[in-house]
Amino acid sequence: MPAAPDWRRARIAATQDLTPDIRLLAVEPEGAFVAPTPGSHIQVGVQVEERADTRSYSVVDAGRDGLYRIAVKRLPTSRGGSRYMWSLAAGARLTVSAPANHFELALGRSHYTLVAGGIGITPIRSMALALAEAGADLRLIYAARTRADLAFADELSTLLGERLQLVVSEEGERIDLDATVATMPACGELYLCGPIGLIEAGKRVWAKAGRPAASLRFETFGSSGRYATLPFTVRIPRLGLEIPVPENRTMLDAMEDAGVAMIHDCRRGECGLCAVHILDAAGPVDHRDVFFSDEEKAANAKLCTCVSRLPGGVLTIDTADRAA
């Protein structure tokens, strides 16, 4: 089992709005400061309605001044974590974990291409800073919906100059992953963070180019899909249950709340432990995990309940609650 996080009290030292819906929070923890490595995140204790829950946020820099800086995007359809984080003003108290890293940056490679989509810039920014400081050969491709959504764009531009490419989808631009990968040196590594569609596309292009799988590094926050985040209903005929999944709850949480016995570990769509069988879906299944392959997702036989959903309607499933 993963080590229990090392929780400590903290306060908000400062806040700064980077874009209309991305806010930078500087968190000052009590006690010994554990420096975050590039790509790492902290967990934060949040209040969602009346419930205590936790969320993970990538740390955007090396924290040399003893602060954890995180950037939180306010999502109208979020599970409530971002609303709580946006309610915190300077001086507010909160609880955070020491940093952990699921998206480690390896040093000493001959070339790095970093690709960030939207709020996926957060871990990528910490990597870009570290690589630029180390004098590494790097390139950063950063996409967002509008120009105003490009948090950190000005400072990254100053830091990286020509090595930064900004992509604004509202202006008709798209990340050309094929060209991006094709122009990378053979020993180069690709670090990718953003919505699940970007990750899946990256994996496909990488494999097609015959690149070694271990040199593609990626992280997804499990919070973005191909479809809107809407309430839907889970039906489990064998158990005689019909469970509403609100837009701000995961299917896994809603099922556990309803008393369905579930196993799970990562809660971010990587390990596959919480997967259940799909019997029928009223619409497209929004697979937001990185556990299933493209083929498995297309077959729609199972889904990861910690991140995946249905954009409304009824999803009929079977769980492990049966003799065999």
Binding site: F103, A106, A213, A214, F218, C266
Partner: peptide, 21 residues
């Protein structure tokens, strides 16, 4: 695991947990 510590194979699944290293 390769010499960089990255997982290159996991049993009984088509993908590899990206954080496995």
């Amino acid at each position: 695991f390769n010499a960089d510590g990255r997982c290159t194979y996991m049993p009984a699944q088509k993908t590899i947990n990206p954080s496995a290293c």
